[in-house]
Amino acid sequence: MNFLEQYNYWIVILLMMSGFYIVIAHGNLVKKLMGLTIFQTSVFILYISVSKVIGGTAPILNDQYTVYSNPLPHVLILTAIVVGVATTALGLALAVRIKEAYGTVEEDVIQEKDLQQEGSAE
């Protein structure tokens, strides 16, 4: 079936959309970060799918093989994974600090408290 031939791209789109949906729809700050991680992961799979050469082996030099997968996207995505880890770590650290300062990690409660604070300031 032609539709399923490039199934990895369909997985990318599925992961991307579900991650994006979680970021938008969930009010819990930690869940939002999980959504964000899924969203980023989908892009990693996109890059790795691009680098696959049909019939190619892993990019290790050997006389037996002549066709290799493209190693460059793998390296790029290693960098992107590091960036993603740093982002998630920073996001979680912020969530901890927010919990300390506001006593909650729910978006709507935080916004309510901010509104109250702004109301009392005036």
């Binding site: 982002t87 996001g91 912020l94 600090r97 927010i98 901010d114």
Partner: peptide, 9 residues
């Protein structure tokens, strides 16, 4: 903190 978190997302 909240501003930073929103910016991060």
């Amino acid at each position: 903190l909240w501003a930073s978190y929103q910016y991060l997302i």
